[in-house]
Design a protein around this nucleic acid. Structure first.
Length: 719
DNA sequence: CTTAGGG
DNA sequence: CCCTAAG
């Protein structure tokens, strides 16, 4: 719901002439949307970048050029360290935090306890799955991987912050800022990439002098491509708290697939989780959406939510109103919200871009390495991943055998998206991004699945776990798991299905999926409805949607493998377009209500009711005069009365719309004056003091008799 | 959920 | 009309 709304009102709204909208509302929407978008984007990007890295790395030897476009972010320990230093400062810290996780893991200095993280981890649901093949890799490779992962993480974070500006393009200032700041960094990265295909770009080089710098640095990488913003939320120290992050998101579960773009665009119903977490199922009610969102955020652990704040803060400085948030729940939410708005307004986030950057596109075939590290990087889970990696290394070092993992794609659990028909493609994209971001934005954990079972013991080595053996590689799967917050544990178990694809037919998966991904990297804008459908189906198969109000796709089901295959290069736009239509229509309703000017008869009914009941009992007014008119809420009536009073006060020349008989306006004024004085509105019917109306009442009655038909709609009480 | 108000 | 803070 939320998404829909937002989408609708995004800047797109402006373009949409059909739906009349109040500027204000539009603005609001924008805000909202944006907020969502930002987050989502981040998440999305995160995944994409992750995947991309993996691919790149794997390919690195093969093709360096291909990777150019991609963002490689390498985050060194340095980064982490700095982060620590700056912990005090929320804004700066955010980015760092994620990084830190990665770093800690990699470094193994490790103050961070992977075990803890891991434990939490298991609780988390699997929303996203990383499919990958596991292969033995050389040690050097593995090392690189780690680095990459880290870097990736950093990127994400960075991207997150900078992202908004860039994507939008709308907010030149912001973007410029970011760009300017990051340019150097970016260049470095690019160069690095160029040099080495798979090579890691080292951002570490960037000296971080102060927190601000850090943030900037991070941003830089992202900016170059404007890829994705990552919402950084992770806390510097991984905690159990993490587990609770953002499950609340409305996103339904979706799968994903490799292609960021393509898959992302699938629409699904609300995920089961969602329902579980939220009793209220009605999508119809926007409020629900709000609630969800709010809850979602609130639910998020308060530990280190600065990210949002941070992001904001970072941006904030740049932007006008942004407040700094230091706090958790409310702050987070608030900030996030605002921030989103901001983004929405200023920037159109093109999912494509994001996708392109993020998506793993490079070498489908080549890919082959460490998925873990990458996965770790992706999420907070990075820590986890790293831990695994570490263990693995230890076990294998002696043998010199490394496990090579390639994650071809990430499956994103069902996402529920609603967009009005009138929504623009851009808004759709944003919406998707938001959804994805929401999904991933929170603390993400990486789950390792072996033969469909989660490997929860992080302390075990790969060999001990059986991951090292080629036999098991097929059964190896990775999942990106959102924080357990809302999602109940059971959900986790649902994940397996998603995983299966990876594990079941890694090879096929890889080949089919990978390729598509590559292709898709940058969406052309060509739309392929079929694809969308497929994707949707795929998603469905993965998740059972308990609630599917608007989901059309729900019915469709495809085997994951199938889904994967069809996915070929799809353009985000395309996907978005198709699904959008279907859903949008349905969702359309969700948008702002269509304007329904009050007819004279309605006004009269209203006036009459108010005359009797006063102005403080709108509910009664509604019941009395509009009980059967569902589109008129008591709030509407109240608002209408407000406007009537205003209208009555202004000159006829200034009035617009269907003219209201002066007689009615007079009554409005009389009633208004009367009830204003009789503060004791409570209602009873007028007594002697209510003289003004007496005559009117009679008239009214007469009218009622004559106009009953007209007023049929309204339940007009004759009492 | 209703009210009351601001947007 | 929307959105929100307050009962």
């Amino acid at each position: 719901m939320v998404f829909k709304k937002r989408l609708d009102y995004g800047y797109n709204a402006f373009s949409v002439s059909n739906v009349p909208r109040a500027p204000r509302s539009i603005r609001r929407r924008d805000r909202t949307k944006r907020s969502v978008g930002d987050t989502q984007i981040c998440a999305f990007e995160l995944l994409a970048s992750l995947a991309g890295k993996l691919l790149e790395e794997s390919e690195s030897s093969a093709s360096s050029n291909a990777s150019e476009g991609r963002n490689h972010v390498s985050i060194g320990k340095d980064v982490v360290k700095q982060e620590i230093q700056y912990d005090d400062k929320p804004l700066k810290t955010e980015c760092i935090e994620h990084v830190s996780c990665g770093a800690s893991v990699v470094d193994s200095d490790g103050t961070t306890e992977n075990s803890d993280n891991l434990k939490e981890f298991k609780h988390s649901e699997n929303h996203a799955i990383l499919g990958g093949t596991l292969t033995k890799m050389q040690r050097s490779y593995s090392e690189q991987t780690n680095i990459d992962l880290k870097s990736a993480i950093c990127k994400h974070n960075v991207a997150y912050e900078s992202f908004t500006g860039n994507l939008d393009g709308c907010s030149p200032n912001f973007g410029q800022l970011c760009d300017g700041i990051c340019e150097k960094d970016i260049k470095l990265e690019r160069e690095a990439k160029g040099l080495e295909s798979g090579a890691l770009a080292i951002t570490n080089n960037c000296p971080l002098k102060d927190p601000l710098d850090l943030s900037m640095t991070f941003l830089a990488p992202v900016n170059s491509h404007r890829d994705v913003k990552l919402p950084s939320r992770s806390a510097s120290v991984p905690n159990a708290s993490f587990s609770r992050h953002r499950n609340d998101i409305k996103l339904g579960s979706r799968d994903d697939s490799r292609d960021d773009d393509d898959q992302i665009y699938r629409f699904n119903k609300l995920s089961n989780r969602f329902k579980a977490s939220r009793p209220s199922t009605r999508i119809e009610d926007r409020r629900i959406g709000k609630l969800l969102m709010s809850k979602y955020w609130k639910a998020a652990p308060k530990l280190k939510d600065f990210e949002h704040c941070t992001a904001d803060g970072g941006i904030k400085s740049l932007h006008r109103k942004r407040k700094t948030c230091y706090n958790y729940d409310n702050c987070q939410y608030d900030t996030l919200y605002k921030r989103r708005k901001f983004f929405d307004r200023n920037s159109m986030v093109t999912s494509d871009e994001v996708i392109g950057n993020g998506s793993v596109s490079n070498s489908p075939e080549k890919v082959k390495n460490e998925s873990k590290s990458s996965s770790g990087a992706m999420s907070h889970g990075a820590c986890e991943m790293s831990s695994l990696l570490t263990g693995h290394q230890a076990s294998h070092k002696s043998n010199d055998s490394h496990v090579k993992l390639s994650i071809k794609s990430f499956r994103i659990p069902e996402l529920y998206i609603e967009v009005p028909e009138t929504a623009t493609v851009g808004s759709l994209k944003r919406t998707v991004m938001d959804a994805v971001t929401a999904l991933l934005g929170g603390r993400i954990h990486v789950g390792v699945l072996l033969q469909g079972k989660k490997v929860r013991d992080d302390s075990r080595t790969l060999s001990q776990t059986g991951i090292s053996s080629e036999d098991n590689l097929d059964a190896l799967g990775f999942t990106l798991e959102p924080g357990p917050v809302i999602a109940p544990p059971p959900l986790c178990y649902e994940e397996p299905p998603l995983l299966l694809p990876c594990g079941a037919a890694p090879q096929n998966f890889t080949s089919s999926l990978t390729t598509p991904v590559l292709d898709t990297k940058i969406p052309d804008a060509t739309a392929d409805p079929p694809l969308l459908t497929n994707s949707a189906k795929a998603m469905d198969s993965n998740y059972k949607h308990t609630s599917s109000q608007t989901d059309i796709l729900t019915d469709q089901k495809l085997s994951e493998s199938t889904a994967l295959v069809p996915v070929p290069a799809m353009n985000v736009e395309v996907l978005s377009v198709v699904p959008a239509n279907q859903k949008i229509r349905k969702s359309e309703l969700a948008q702002r209500r269509t304007r329904r000017p009050f007819s004279v008869s309605e006004v009269e009914a209203l006036v009459r009711a108010v005359e009797k009941l006063g102005t403080g009992r709108w509910r009664d007014v509604k019941l009395r005069a509009f009980e059967n008119v569902d589109h008129r809420t008591y709030v509407d009536l109240k608002d209408k009365w407000k406007t009537l009073v205003h209208t009555a006060k202004i000159s006829p020349q200034q009035r617009r719309g269907e003219p209201v008989p002066q007689e009615l306006l007079d009554r409005v004024m009389a009633a208004h004056a009367y009830w204003s004085q009789h503060h004791a509105k409570q209602g009873k019917h007028h007594t002697g003091s209510w003289r003004i109306t007496e005559s009117i009442d009679k008239e009214q009655e007469e009218r009622e008799k004559t106009c009953t038909k007209d007023l049929d709609l309204f339940k007009i009480c004759s009492d």
